[in-house]
Every structure is written in C-alpha cells, then in structure tokens.
Amino acid sequence: MAVDIIAIERTRLSLVNGSRNLSLMLDKLRLIEEIRDVDVFGFTQDIVDLMKYIESSQEQLDAYIKDHRKLV
C-alpha cells in the first residue's frame, strides 16, 4: 500500500511538472506570435530612411569640408 501511495504521488508530481512545462511552452509560442505580428516592413523602411539621411548628412559634411579647405 505504501508503494502505491508513493507511485501515485510520483505520478501526480509528474503531471504537475508536465502541466507547468506545457504552460511555459504555450507562453513562448504566444511570444513568438507577438513578435511575428510586429510591423517588420515599417521597421525596415525606417532603417532605409535613416541610412538615406546619414548619407545625405555625409554629403553635406563633405561639401562643407571642401568649401572650408578652399577658404584656408
């Protein structure tokens, strides 16, 4: 009888642990779904716009340096 109680308790603990693990996996899947829903195109476009702005700023800086060298 004691062996049966121990076996039942082990089974119960295994089920509890399995339930917790399943819950954690579901939470991770929900997080993955949320990440997929992010507007990737908008983010990519923001990066492209930023790169264009940096290139434009570099061109302006180069022009200022060139003009400054002419004066000096």
Rank of each mutant, 00 (worst) to 15 (best):
D4I: 06
D49H: 06
R20N: 08
M1W: 06
L26I: 07
F41T: 11
I65C: 01
S23C: 04
F43R: 15
L26M: 12
V38Y: 06
L50Q: 11
D46Y: 07
K28G: 04
L26R: 10
S14Y: 07
D62K: 09
D39F: 02
Y53Q: 15
R20S: 03
S56Y: 09
E9I: 07
A2R: 02
D4V: 06
V3H: 12
E9R: 11
I6P: 02
I8H: 10
K66Q: 13
R10I: 04
E34C: 01
K28T: 03
E34P: 01
R69V: 13
E59V: 07
L26P: 00
E59T: 11
Y53I: 09
D4K: 09
I54N: 05
I32T: 11
Q60M: 06
Y64N: 10
D39G: 01
V72F: 09
L29F: 07
F43A: 13
R10D: 08
S23F: 08
L26Y: 07
D67Y: 01
L15C: 05
L61G: 01
G42F: 02
Y64I: 15
H68Q: 11
I47F: 02
R12Q: 08
I32R: 11
I32M: 09
L71T: 15
V16M: 14
S56G: 05
G18P: 00
F43S: 10
L22V: 02
S57F: 05
D37I: 01
D27Y: 03
L15A: 12
Q45K: 12
S14K: 14
I65Q: 03
S56Q: 11
M1Q: 03
E34H: 03
R10H: 06
F41A: 14
M51L: 14
F41K: 13
I6L: 11
D62I: 04
L71F: 06
D49Y: 08
D49P: 00
I35W: 06
I5H: 09
I65Y: 08
V38P: 00
V72A: 13
D46T: 05
L15Y: 12
L71H: 08
D4A: 12
